[in-house]
Design a protein around this nucleic acid. Structure first.
Lengths: 173, 173
DNA sequence: GCTAGTTAATTTCCTGTGCAACTAATTTTG
DNA sequence: CAAAATTAGTTGCACAGGAAATTAACTAGC
């Protein structure tokens, strides 16, 4: 197994000797299986990026997403965030709670419907994002640095196709 | 916001009225942010597929991965599976335990090193895979049905590039 | 051959999250 | 207008999974 095959097999070990053989029989090669490959890749990207929020800003992914959406349309409700991000409402609720406790966002009952609450970034929250967002974007830029413009565009295109196809097949029904 | 934009925004609601406005300000648009987009897509694919294992075979993703690798090289240890799949060893350990309890795999201490155990599919496990693997492959085929051969190939290529780049940047160091 | 490390796997502890039940505000129905 | 249904958000419960401690088997150094 050469280095390239080893990389493809998902092997990322340092001092290893006896992880010898490549697959020999023919049944299902997960490395040829798109759902697995895509998930592995996305997980690793997510996790690497999560360290940026987590270690340096004590934000988990859910919290980061709430903040990012608020940076974007600074007047939202939990429900809208659920819809935009596909996150469970409990997860969103807890993220909001944590962010409010830290003083990064504020919430006020919506005047037209007291069940919902209008969410806003506080000055502190906005300031944090002023630092964090460029870092995240820089990280992303580095990630895609080796892709050509065409490759990047095509990737987004194919992802859109897959999303559309997902909705046709099972995705929740 | 038309249907297409709505889809892109990750909105997948049915009877919704007041989820009106698209983002207006300019800070970080998660939908333009590759890590987020990729993770959303991969999550949804994974979860949709997981229902196939879960509902019909009572297998979670970790267990499915262990089985798939065993279908492939029917003589493995937990450690190798960890290396191949990038899963935590505790997760692998639990998957193996569950699979053994269900009689889908067997484990015997490795003769050359009693700490490790050789894993094998049982007849039952092999039989289950005989049903499950084609179903998974059929599902995948349906997912990628709208992609041209070129798009599919390019997608894998770009994914490889991203994986390589990930290893250069942070991914665990 | 004994002590000190190392390694494979398991277990313990803890956190995050999904689901389902719940609370409170609002809308609909009769 | 009261009762029933719906909706936004919260909370209780259970479970999956990661980090770190633990156990058992092996290796290296002296």
């Amino acid at each position: 197994m050469n280095a390239e095959e080893e990389r493809q097999a998902g092997l990322a070990m340092e001092g290893d000797e006896d992880l010898a053989g490549p697959p020999t029989k023919q049944e299902l090669d997960l490395n040829q299986f798109l759902p697995y490959r895509l998930n592995s890749l996305a997980d690793r990207i997510s996790q690497a990026l999560a360290e940026l929020y987590e270690e340096r800003y004590q934000l988990n992914i859910a919290q980061w997403r709430v903040l990012a959406w608020l940076s974007h349309c600074d007047e939202l409700t939990a429900k809208k965030i659920c819809a935009y991000t596909n996150m469970d409402k409990a997860r969103v609720s807890r993220a909001i709670q944590a962010l409010e406790e830290r003083g990064l966002i504020s919430r006020t009952p919506a005047p037209e419907d007291q069940r919902q609450q209008d969410l806003h970034l506080t000055a502190v929250g906005r300031k944090l994002l002023t630092k964090l967002i460029p870092e995240a974007q820089a990280w992303e830029a580095e990630l895609v640095a080796t892709l050509t413009a065409g490759e990047y565009r095509d990737l987004l295109n194919v992802m859109r196709k897959l999303e559309r196809q997902l909705e046709r097949i099972g995705d929740k029904g």
